[in-house]
């Protein structure tokens, strides 16, 4: 997805993991993914640089689709589709 497309996404759920370091955001995503239905979108907020690389790899292994990352001031919004 392009940055413009990512900016228009309205996530079905949002996980704010900005106060944690690796693997905190990944575990927060893992806990939250069970709360959404297949086809729904989750937004993970993380200030952890490694997480922006981790989430796509995790999605690939678990069969979810990582839609992309939007960089905000001091944190990232990572979008994934279950």
């Amino acid at each position: 997805m392009t940055q413009e497309e990512l900016l228009t996404i309205k996530a079905d759920t949002s996980v704010d993991a900005r106060g944690t370091s690796c693997p905190g955001p990944l575990l927060a995503a893992k806990k939250a993914i069970g709360t959404i239905e297949k086809g729904q979108i989750m937004e993970v907020l993380s200030a952890d640089e490694g997480t922006r690389n981790d989430i796509p790899k995790w999605c690939n292994k678990k069969g979810f689709e990582c839609l992309g990352t939007v960089e905000e001031s001091g944190f990232y919004k990572i979008y994934l589709k279950k």
Partner: peptide
């Protein structure tokens, strides 16, 4: 603990 967190995330 970090490694176990990753392992848990991957079931």
């Amino acid at each position: 603990g970090v490694i176990l967190g990753g392992a848990a995330a991957e079931d």
